[in-house]
Design a protein around this nucleic acid. Sequence first.
DNA 1: CCTGGTTCCATGCGATGCAAGATACCTGGT
DNA 2: ACCAGGTATCTTGCATCGCATGGAACCAGG
Lengths: 124, 124
Amino acid sequence: MEPGDSTKQARAAAQLRKGVLEYCVLALMRDRPRYGVELLHALEDSGALATSQGTVYPLLSRLRRDDLVTTTWQESASGPPRRYYALTDSGRAALDEFTRVWPGFRNAVDAFLATPHPSTGDLA
Amino acid sequence: MEPGDSTKQARAAAQLRKGVLEYCVLALMRDRPRYGVELLHALEDSGALATSQGTVYPLLSRLRRDDLVTTTWQESASGPPRRYYALTDSGRAALDEFTRVWPGFRNAVDAFLATPHPSTGDLA
DNA sequence: CCTGGTTCCATGCGATGCAAGATACCTGGT
DNA sequence: ACCAGGTATCTTGCATCGCATGGAACCAGG
């Protein structure tokens, strides 16, 4: 996906990311603290959720503002210090919430796409 | 889900809807033309994608503006006339695009949520 | 000193969902 | 004729979010 890509497919994928990215980032921190570029690379590797720094850093700022993550600076062997992001209790709760909500949402979309007649309610 | 609901769960679901609603509405028109309130009820029935008129009508306006749907007025036996929305070729193409993109996206999110270690790339 | 790689962050724009309100049509009761 | 209630459409203003762009700081090597 090149930067200047503005095809319909890219547009659909872009809209799709909205709101989900936040929780995928939280999920990445579930095991251990991560730093910005690390998260960026993990999202890139996933393919469908690849994004840019201009998206991740404001997102991380919001997470910190809402007390979903805490941060600690840590020296790096090769490069400037890294700011590591770790889940707070609120952050873990939010992630759990999302994990509960997601399957229902996913199945609903699957139903709309799969079924020829996703049931308007009537059958007459 | 009450109107004034602002719990974390509702917030997560709201963010989730972004970008997906458009294509679910298109999917609902796949078989036959539908009118606003009909679409609204179908979304309500799905549970996870329930929304309000203030969301659906601007969305339908955008779809019409982008030539993804065409509309025709039709009398109703009980009530004011209804504006029926039908897919255009572009609309059907957009729906197909989304149908192609969605599984990859869905699986990516599933992977992030399910796996304890969604692979930062390293395995050492 | 200067180039290049790594890491962080802020600004401005466009798009989207939503609450709230406004308008119009039809039916039925008084 | 009048009014209330349900059906159906649409608009306005707000908050949020993803993203392109640009900038700043730190380290290593030539």
